[in-house]
Design a protein around this nucleic acid. Sequence first.
DNA 1: CCGCGGGCCTGAGAGC
DNA 2: TGCTCTCAGGCCCGCG
Length: 293
Amino acid sequence: MPELPEVETVRRGLQPAMEGAKIVKAEVRRKDLRFPFQKDFTARLDGQTVIGLGRRAKYLLADLASGDVLLMHLGMSGSFRVIEQDDRQAPGRFHHPRSEDRTHDHVVFHMSSGAAIVFNDPRRFGYMKVIARTALGDEPLLKGLGPEPLGNEFDAAMLARACANKKTSLKAALLDQRVVAGLGNIYVCEALFRAHLSPRRLAATLATKKDEPTDHARWLVAAIHAVLNEAIKAGGSSLRDHRQTSGELGYFQHSFQVYDREGEKCRSPGCDGIVRRFTQNGRSTFWCPKCQK
DNA sequence: CCGCGGGCCTGAGAGC
DNA sequence: TGCTCTCAGGCCCGCG
């Protein structure tokens, strides 16, 4: 499911239920998600107070009082929902994708407040792992990640430098988590559209020969900032699986300009182009050939 | 080192 | 209705 705005939406939804609360018991309902659970996974969570809930790229990180960090990734289809104590008696009251089908509820955190936090993931591309906070810097899953797109370090100069020696397309470069961490297929398509840049353009064209950022790099950074901030404000995009932790839908999908709009009219003012789709590195790219150059 | 394609899973939707 | 096929928001790994 989830790109940065969806993960951030989930983080904000989980925060009130997790921060300051204790995980009385962690329940794991199968032996693996994408990877097998660590042998001591539940033992390291049981009885732990959650100090804070953060996000790095598409990862959620729960800081525990023990000094461990619980690392969580939603994969393609992972979702969390928070069931308040009052609602646990009446499960029909909250909405959830496939709300009748609890088959894919793989992990439950039973919290000291009486709330249950349930992780559901049909495709099981998601995963969870407990690591020592002191080992965060060596964690292979996080090690290669580029800058946060909404962080201070990410600007046109940095993006240009990261792309300067790339031999690949702009689309592929923005999907590369080493270049910038947190974008996925939807928001890359949308950002390129807003910047009026072709997904086929070479990534290296964002930099001059002296590795200085071009105006295109500046447009693109502005477009990335705008689309992510707007999407977060909208609670993310709900296509198939993404829900907020309350069960509510995000609504940024109504603001898509190109994603999933193949054959429809370009929404750029004054442009009469048609949105097209093609495959790049095995993924669908949506764009307007008329106003993205 | 880099870039690409395959594979991991299940479910939804299209077409027959 | 039901089968088969394609596709899906991510990321690791092995290959050239």
